[in-house]
Nucleic acid binder design. Structure first.
Lengths: 146, 146
DNA sequence: CTAATGTCTATAGCCACTGTAGCTTCAAGA
DNA sequence: TCTTGAAGCTACAGTGGCTATAGACATTAG
């Protein structure tokens, strides 16, 4: 049995984050020691590692909740898990495309800065005048990265 | 003079967002009509367009605040604006690299799904077992895109 | 036994908005 | 002129995914 700190270290997740996951029902309530401290089994570590890894891959907590409940029923077909992963892949590809076009535009902007005064600064100018953009950004979607 | 709705349409920014920008001091307080409704000048439209465009490029509101104050002093050298844009570019390149490696791993995961049952599902398996990863994700940073 | 570290709860804050409720103001049509 | 419906107003709560703080209790090493 691990205390929350050891668990966090082992899984690479911060302690408050573990408590947060429990609070929102992503992890089951932990057993408690005589002194009311959380105790975790090896299985709990696996589960948390799964969560961390999925988070690293950009899955939302909701998607992870679904994946966890799927992995709790290993006899069912894996089409649902596959679908979640595919949706995630599509999301990431969308973001990649968007970031790539932002990068092009930013590069252009930065490259054109001749080091003069603000009045002649392309950075400021391009930001103020959309018609100077290279790329079309397409419709708005969520786009608030990070 | 434009009402807030027209301004929003013209700049491509939602009305509550404009009020929010005013509230946090990113935009100056708007003039008011006799009936207490906000009125905006052409200049305000330019400023808001600048903000929207910078947001689309992924600048934080703090960075935009700096850029705006730079553009309010056009006689100074543009090194600062250039630095902000370069920092933003570096950020975006980091995110691009990260997303690209996530994409590789997700693709591998999805490709290996043979359509069997959860018990054999690579998606679930890979998520649970870090040693099955292809890519190294590097240290944690912010990584919470979109 | 003591001191340092770890854990507990509860609560607030972060970013950049978005949504809600309940009101007032305005512009256009009958 | 009156009415109706859209658009505006304020204030506040909620989103996602944590992170930080405060003050009390538990555990462990020396």
């Amino acid at each position: 049995m691990l205390t929350i700190g050891k668990l966090g270290q082992a899984a690479g997740v911060k302690v408050p984050t573990i408590r947060y996951y429990e609070q929102i029902g992503l992890l089951p309530e932990a057993e408690r020691s005589a002194g009311n401290q959380r105790l975790y089994s090896r299985k709990a570590l696996d589960r948390l590692t799964f969560v961390r890894h999925a988070r690293e891959l950009g899955f939302t907590l909701d998607a992870i909740r679904d994946l966890l409940s799927l992995s709790d029923h290993p006899d069912q077909p894996c089409a649902a898990a596959d679908a979640i992963a595919k949706a995630q892949l599509a999301e990431i590809e969308k973001r990649l495309a968007r970031l790539a076009s932002l990068k092009v535009e930013l590069k252009r902007m930065v490259a054109q800065c001749a080091g003069g005064s603000i009045a002649d600064c392309r950075v400021i100018e391009v930001l103020g005048n959309h018609s100077l953009c290279a790329a079309e950004h397409g419709p708005r979607e969520s786009e608030g990265d990070s």
